[in-house]
Simulated assay, not measured.
Amino acid sequence: MPGLPPTAAPPDGLVDGPFTATDAAKAVGTVLEQVLEERLRHSRAVDPVFARELAGRLVTLAGRGGKRLRTAFAHCGWRAAGGSGDATAVLRTGAALELLQACALVHDDVMDGSVQRRGAPALHVELARGHWAAAMRGSAESFGTSAAVLAGDLALAWADDLLTETALGTRHGRRLHEEWRAMRTEMVAGQYRDLYAQAARSSGVEEALSIATLKSALYTVARPLALGAALAGADEHVLDALRAAGRCTGLAFQLRDDLLGAFGDPALTGKPVDDDLRSRKLTFLLAVAVQLADAAGDHQAAAALAPDADPTSEKAVQQVRSALQRTGARDLVEAKIGELTDMSLAHFDRVGASPAVRHEFAALAGRAAGMTPHGEEGAA
């Protein structure tokens, strides 16, 4: 495949010894950079304004960072299913996952009205500011929103192109594409359920878990594990065990992100705190707090968390945060994260992977769930 590394070996002698999931998360940056350079060259040939104003900004966002956890889990799934040797297809699949993540972030920021991402202005904000600078003030916000939707669509197109090219180059491409196709639909379904719950002012615990599973758990961990395993020709037993393990770790990941959204440090997470609280987004944390407040007869907490509450002022936000703490919801979610992580490890043991791969997965699961020291990280 032109322009891409011929083997899984890390660029420039990145590591000595076995190539691990952590190494894959580092190496995918080089593959992604090469893919983005190629896509940007093509964009310039299509139209220079489009390339400069939209494609270039998308390239900057996609290359700006993130934890590359999806790539790490894809590589771990590949190894768990017996994959070894040349992992180029895994790295390309990881790069496609990173582009899909860029699509999700851009669209999510538009829908949530978030102003910051990865320590920089959200893409729709940056695009609106550029339009504002062009003295077309009346339509700046609308322009930024519309252009960001197109940028997200472009990221999805690039992700699909890369995944399709990769699938065509491997004998297990059909199974790889089946996992990818399912993941895309689940991701959109989760995003819609998230919007629907906000519009309906929902507070149900089961609904919150369903949204977290669709919107984050499956596409962050469960499907990446299965994508990697598919590249190794995994049978259905292995795939089922990996999906179950990934669902548990992915839920723990999202619950940690919910906690960071309420109690985290923006300097470490790279995005504003309080956005979920101000919009009353239905999270497991919120749903549990509502349930606990009602059970305890804590009318003050119930009022702060009620569907008709309007936590837009700083005082109201502090009341919501206090209610999450006082009801015991924060502690309950912490305990749930630990429980899900333990369940995930038990499911992964059913795969029959080597001790080294089991250890690797345990480390990744702990990092995703925030159970190991790695700084405060959000879901980006």
Rank of each mutant, 00 (worst) to 15 (best):
P224W: 14
R171N: 09
A293E: 00
V28M: 02
L61F: 10
V115A: 09
G366N: 12
R181T: 15
V205R: 14
L97Y: 03
V125P: 02
P272N: 07
R137P: 00
R41H: 13
A222H: 09
P10I: 04
A329Q: 03
S279I: 04
L324V: 07
P10Y: 06
S114C: 08
T166Y: 10
R137T: 11
P6V: 11
R129L: 13
H359A: 15
G228K: 07
D86F: 11
M183K: 06
G94Q: 04
L225Q: 05
K215G: 01
A296Q: 14
A329S: 12
P121R: 05
G113F: 02
T30R: 00
G13V: 05
V59D: 10
T30G: 02
A167C: 14
G130N: 01
G378M: 10
E38Q: 15
A267H: 13
D298H: 08
Q116P: 02
R223A: 08
V288S: 12
V238P: 02
G261D: 03
R184Q: 14
T20D: 15
Q101V: 11
D23P: 10
A72T: 03
L58T: 12
L345K: 02
A241V: 06
D16H: 12
L282S: 02
T269G: 05
T30L: 00
A303Y: 08
A368E: 10
A289K: 06
A346G: 12
W78F: 14
L4V: 07
Q191I: 08
A306L: 07
G270P: 04
W78M: 06
A167Y: 10
G63Q: 07
D342T: 13
L156N: 01
L40C: 01
G378V: 05
F19W: 13
A244F: 03
R193Y: 13
S313T: 15
Q34M: 12
A200F: 02
K215M: 04
G144Q: 11
L14I: 09
V149M: 14
L209I: 11
T185P: 00
G375F: 13
P224T: 11
L154K: 03
A301I: 05
P10D: 05
L100G: 03
V90E: 12
A369E: 03
Q325D: 15
W180P: 05
H237Y: 06
G233S: 08
L154S: 07
L251E: 07
A151C: 15
G85Q: 13
V31A: 09
D342C: 01
D275H: 04
I211K: 06
E165Y: 05
L36T: 10
S142W: 11
E376K: 02
A167I: 11
F348E: 00
Q325P: 03
D276F: 09
P121G: 10
A147N: 11
S146G: 14
G63M: 02
A217H: 06
E360Y: 00
G173H: 09
G375N: 06
A102Y: 01
L156M: 12
G77A: 04
T170F: 01
A151S: 11
L239T: 14
M343I: 02
V59I: 04
A24P: 02
